[in-house]
Design a protein around this nucleic acid. Structure first.
Lengths: 221, 221
DNA sequence: GGATACATACCGTTGGTATGTATTGCGGCA
DNA sequence: TGCCGCAATACATACCAACGGTATGTATCC
């Protein structure tokens, strides 16, 4: 493979291949060689020129995903003014669930329980960035416009993210459709006293669809 | 090392060393050689005679811990009759928090975020066994004696375990003492409507102590 | 005398590094 | 403006120690 005039293309190639493999096979079960084999002629030299380690690739994958997601969120949320904090919260989660990349993720990933590193890194980012930077401000706004009430906006944000990312999703702790429905109901009840119940019909239906779709996965045990 | 007449002792030795290292350095950062070096003369042959893989060792470590914990729980909970479901729930969490093994864990483990495999395996066990077998029955009993009210005992058990194991502990998503206090408060408020608020003064103080103790850990970043 | 409980020697794969090489962009000079 | 020279860039190739795991040997127990 000759030298590329636009090295970013090479970086993107590497990230694309790595992300696909990390999602499909898990981080630990994906070797550098696996990535190389999906690069179309590029070799190990290319990888270690652009990234300093395997973990560095994973971080870059998450970062890219994160940025893309961020941009989309800001665009949509800032577009529509005069929404209450709660309504924005609802919108945010809806966007998160309906993005095509998320769809792809659901389709190609076996349980994230088999991908500990990725799950943990994602959750870390969620707690350290998404909670204080994205969700807590929305809750704060909800408090000011009267739609949400709590003395602990950051902590409420953390709970919401933890539960929605780990519990009310078929990706991690799998559940039968019946059990997932109960989780959704209880989640709603938990949020109700704070006026933060963003679980609407659309959200519920989407999660249930994913749950059923996900039930067809072969469970590698 | 000659052949041991009581091979269980060898197994225990391996599990002891492995557990210590897994907790201190994390699963992925502990090599088989590391374990061997802490075995006092035993070699790789011993390990692979008793265990079929490194992961198998980790599972055995968790299983042993689990069994020990189970025995203790049953003894104490069955001793005291005429307790309400809520009171038993309180007692259970208190026992979990005050055991010496747990203390040791807190003392020697860096953030479990650096130990993805162990964290995930533990959470898996929590959701698949502890929730349905230990917590849900207590909640069910609480429903019957009127101390707890919910239509979804299993799901309530799941939420309680998820949040207490991941969120209201300094071991995973670290927090300043002030933030941890807010987490505890919000956790209490979340559980209140279900009559399942097991967060009492003892529990709070214990968590706060651990949080401060844990704050002195060097954070490997 | 088999089955058990190890020890020893060995293996393929892995993440990572050292080094080589062709290409590119760029500062300076005509 | 055009061209030269050269360092920085973008890779390819060759190599390495450490890893998890296996095959085989051997002494001990029942």
């Amino acid at each position: 493979m000759a030298r590329n005039k636009y090295p970013e293309e090479t970086v993107e190639k590497i990230l694309d291949a790595a992300m696909r493999l990390f999602i499909e096979k898990g981080y630990e079960n994906t070797s550098i060689q696996d990535i190389i084999d999906n690069l179309g002629g590029l070799t190990k030299g290319a990888i270690y020129h652009h990234f300093k380690s395997k973990e560095d690739i994973m971080l870059a994958v998450l970062e890219r995903q994160h940025n893309e997601y961020d941009a989309k969120l800001y665009r949509i949320l800032n577009d529509r003014d005069n929404m209450t904090g709660l309504a924005r919260l609802r919108a945010l989660f809806w966007i998160a669930l309906s993005s095509p990349r998320q769809e792809n993720f659901f389709r190609s990933s076996p349980s994230l329980l088999n991908n500990p590193k990725m799950l943990i890194l994602q959750m870390k980012g969620t707690m350290e960035e998404a909670a204080p930077q994205h969700i807590a401000p929305l809750i704060q706004q909800g408090i000011e416009d009267g739609s949400i009430r709590t003395d602990y906006p950051l902590q409420l944000a953390e709970v919401i993210l933890l539960l929605s990312n780990l519990w009310v999703t078929p990706l991690v702790f799998a559940a039968s459709p019946q059990d997932m429905e109960k989780r959704l109901k209880l989640f709603g009840q938990l949020l109700e006293p704070f006026g933060a119940n963003f679980i609407d019909e659309d959200f519920t239906r989407r999660i249930m669809d994913l749950t059923e779709m996900y039930g067809n996965h072969p469970d590698p045990e």
